[in-house]
Amino acid sequence: MLELRLVQGSLLKKVLESIKDLVNDANFDFSSSGFSLQSMDSSHVALVALLLKSEGFEHYRCDRNTSMGMNLGNMSKMLKCAGNDDIITIKGDDGSDTVTFMFESPTQDKIADFEMKLMDIDSEHLGIPEAEYHAIVKMPSAEFARICKDLASIGDTVVISVTKEGVKFSTRGDIGTANIVLRQNTTVDKPEDATVIEMNEPVSMTFALRYMNSFTKATPLSNTVTISMSPDLPVVVEYKIAEMGYVRFYLAPKMEE
């Protein structure tokens, strides 16, 4: 028996919108502490890791650990039928090949049930090692999205370099080059507007902008984004989901041949 009631249903809608273009199918792993998802994109260049902890739900019941394979495109179609103010409940029964999404309007005058077929997904689960990163940049998520969008109009890859001067995003393409430098800026009215650079050692890495732009679909989930880099690891682009968990995107770098 599985029953999860999320008053802020729009959160689940936003989570799906942030990952559905990167990953087609994924196993949702439910346990008593919450649910998680880990999946690579089809070309095995990026990985998404989602965690939503049980504390964030108004009601959370999961009698035994269970994994449900879902097509994220189909799940997104169903969740789009929920209003932004709706309460969403996810229900499942042991051994069933379907999951039910229930949408309740805030005034309880409209209640909808959507039953979705589950699928068997043979997915690899990867061990992500704990790591000390050379540099961690925390910045407004909207600013990061703007930079990725702007640079993608010039080139295909972005070089992200962190030094004690700041963080530099660079690209080059047929029409020219672009460099955007952000300096640490903590003297802002609101903490979410700050750019904070923690640097143990300078680092410079190259990434495909196509993936970075896909990650920025998670911007509505959080005012800030954290970018963690070490030369021998995929970059981690993390959007925290207030009091509930996170969506993390891992992206393997491009290397000089």
């Binding site: 495909a208 995929p234 393997a252 491009k254 000089e256 041949e257």
Partner: peptide, 14 residues
Amino acid sequence: PCLQRKILDYFKDD
């Protein structure tokens, strides 16, 4: 010319 690395180059199967 840059070579796109894969996630599996860094993270291993559990």
